[in-house]
């Protein structure tokens, strides 16, 4: 049976500690990330409680998050267009772990929101959308699937707490009928 040989010396965590020549190293690199032209304006919009997209003059899609180019037509986008911020939940999950896989005290609900924006056909494969927390929905809403297709809108932080960040939107919450 192939493979006939599988070289490799397995080492358990406790045995690793006994080996000579083990190196530990903590890297920290600091960055100042440029948000670039389109996202800088987008972040300023968030601070004002507005969700901004950019219009492609060719296919007429309003791209959210905005970019300076339309990747479908590969040309510059032109006008800024404010979208209402409402939309439907495309998919949602419940996270019990944080970034480094630590258990969270309180699970979080995260989703992708298909935003109401001009230029897209109903149910199209590509859409304007954001990735954010969901609030006002339960774990059971996620597991049962009730949350998918639910109409939502952003819950904004109070203006004085906004920093020009994705977190100026606290979460997306159901639109009460």
């Amino acid at each position: 049976m192939k493979p006939e040989r599988t070289p490799g010396r397995y080492i358990r965590e406790e045995d690793l500690r006994r080996l000579p020549g083990v190196i530990e190293y903590k890297p920290v690199a600091r960055y100042s990330y440029s948000a670039g032209q389109a996202l800088s304006e987008f972040l300023r919009g968030l601070k004002e409680g507005r969700i901004l997209g950019k219009l492609c003059p060719s296919c007429r899609r309003v791209l959210v998050p905005p970019r300076v180019y339309c990747e479908f037509c590969f040309i510059h986008t032109t006008e800024w267009v404010e979208v209402p911020g409402t939309g439907v939940v495309e998919t949602a999950v419940v996270s019990y772990i944080g970034t480094a896989r630590e258990r969270l005290e309180k699970p979080e609900i995260i989703g992708v929101i298909r935003l109401d924006a001009p230029g897209y056909r109903e149910g199209s494969f590509d859409f304007a959308g954001l990735f954010h927390r969901l609030c006002g929905v339960t774990e059971d809403d996620v597991k049962s699937g009730r949350v998918i297709g639910m109409r939502v809108r952003p819950r904004w932080r109070p203006p004085e707490e906004r920093r020009g960040s994705m977190l100026d939107i606290e979460c997306f919450e159901p639109v009460q009928p």
Partner: peptide, 13 residues
Amino acid sequence: VIHVEGRMETEKY
């Protein structure tokens, strides 16, 4: 252009 501070780190290698 807005700049966002960030870092790349891990507990250790």
